[in-house]
Design a protein around this nucleic acid. Structure first.
Lengths: 158, 158
DNA sequence: GGTAAAAAGATCGTGCACGATATAATCGCG
DNA sequence: CGCGATTATATCGTGCACGATCTTTTTACC
């Protein structure tokens, strides 16, 4: 069956993606007071979490985990290198690959960031179990969205 | 009780805000094939939905509903005026206020956009009731985030 | 081994997003 | 009435985000 095309569906409060868009921006605003003193932006913090977890990574690997693309991460990683948080080294076995290594300063930020997730949870003041449920649904949605984007944005035809 | 500060909480897959951030970007990518042929970006589409729903709005009103700020919306609205979708008129009763009026072309886009929400729902292929539940939780989260941001990002002290 | 295709990054241009600051109009209150 | 505070919008600078295109290296296959 086809979906209706009524103008009712164009009301802002009927959209799923608007609260998604709004919540993502609002949470980044809440992170700012914690990240700015460390000289970090939110996407840089994401990249650091990946490197803290995995150790040295290729740019490609970072893109995969952060769901970003090279044209975003290349300048971002260059800024992080400029700040002395990472080093960019061409892989010897494949000269195309750029490996990103944390410096001492990059590792040192880990302990300074350790309190941030907890602080943010306190700030938002939503019951923990609600957040867990929401996170599960969001994770599931992200998987679906990745598939849809990979499929070229065309509807699934199962 | 205070929250733990373990490095475990710094794992990317433990973050709530990362799937939020990722889902918001991925959905915007899914909108692009529908919006780009109309010459629209996603934030412009949001503003149009507000204007279709409310009629002429002040910039302030648009900012409130879109949860954006003047430094984002002013250039955005100027581009939309350049495209001939809206007109910007100073209010006669208060010269500070800029009222945004849809032009004929702006209204005409409404019917062209009517199919977009349905198409996106088909694309993502998640059961409707799951999306409804997720939307409710997200709406609730946005309210909490707005309060937290308004409170200056400091934890609630009830 | 030689060349076409694929893969990994880099670059460019445009448009958000937002903190900080500026400017002009209006309001409040003594 | 007058003037300081508030409000509405604008401007500036920086950093994403991404589509499109480019370069270089590697791979595949004849």
């Amino acid at each position: 069956m086809s979906r209706p095309e009524s103008p009712e569906l164009l009301r802002l409060d009927r959209q799923l993606c608007f609260p998604l868009y709004a919540a993502a921006r609002l949470t980044q605003r809440l992170y700012k007071p914690y990240l700015e003193p460390l000289g970090l932006t939110y996407p840089q913090y994401i990249v650091l979490m990946i490197l803290w977890e995995e150790g040295p990574c290729s740019v490609r690997r970072i893109n995969e985990r952060a769901l970003l693309q090279t044209n975003t991460t290349t300048p971002l990683l260059k800024r992080m290198a400029q700040m002395g948080l990472v080093e960019r080294k061409r892989a010897q076995h494949d000269e195309r690959v750029v490996m990103i290594h944390l410096t001492e300063a990059g590792w040192a930020l880990r302990s300074q960031c350790a309190c941030i997730p907890g602080r943010l949870l306190d700030t938002v003041d939503v019951p923990g179990e609600d957040l867990v449920a929401l996170k599960q649904q969001l994770d599931h949605l992200v998987v679906r969205l990745e598939k849809a984007v990979a499929a070229g944005g065309r509807p699934e035809h199962r």
